[in-house]
């Protein structure tokens, strides 16, 4: 029971943190921010890894876990890289005339 109330507190504080962090964002950054937040939501990899590690040799569980890991990592890796690609354009202003 204490672990549930603890988890609920974590949920509440995490939500408040999310609301606070994104308070003021220049519109320029909305798209990269959405893409970055999306990559972070791929943190489900942790759940996939737990599922695989605790599968105890159950083939179907391993398969589900492996698939889930693949989907989650696609989200994470793709998300972070594509965000970096976008943000690189904002900072890499020194290289002029790249056509």
């Amino acid at each position: 029971m204490s672990s549930l109330s603890q988890a609920l507190w974590v949920l509440l504080l995490g939500s408040l943190l999310g609301l606070e962090l994104i308070g003021k964002v220049p519109p320029t950054l909305h798209t990269p921010l959405m893409s970055g937040a999306n990559a972070i939501s791929g943190i489900t990899v942790l759940a996939s890894l737990t599922l695989i590690a605790q599968a105890d040799g159950n083939g179907a569980l391993l398969l589900l876990g492996g698939l889930s890991l693949g989907f989650a990592l696609f989200n994470v890796i793709g998300g972070f890289l594509v965000t970096d690609r976008m943000l690189a354009m904002f900072s890499g202003r020194k290289t002029k005339g790249a056509n």
Partner: peptide, 11 residues
């Protein structure tokens, strides 16, 4: 996972 998920959800 709960913290990160909640953060992204709220944001």
């Amino acid at each position: 996972l709960i913290v990160a998920g909640a953060m992204v959800g709220a944001a």
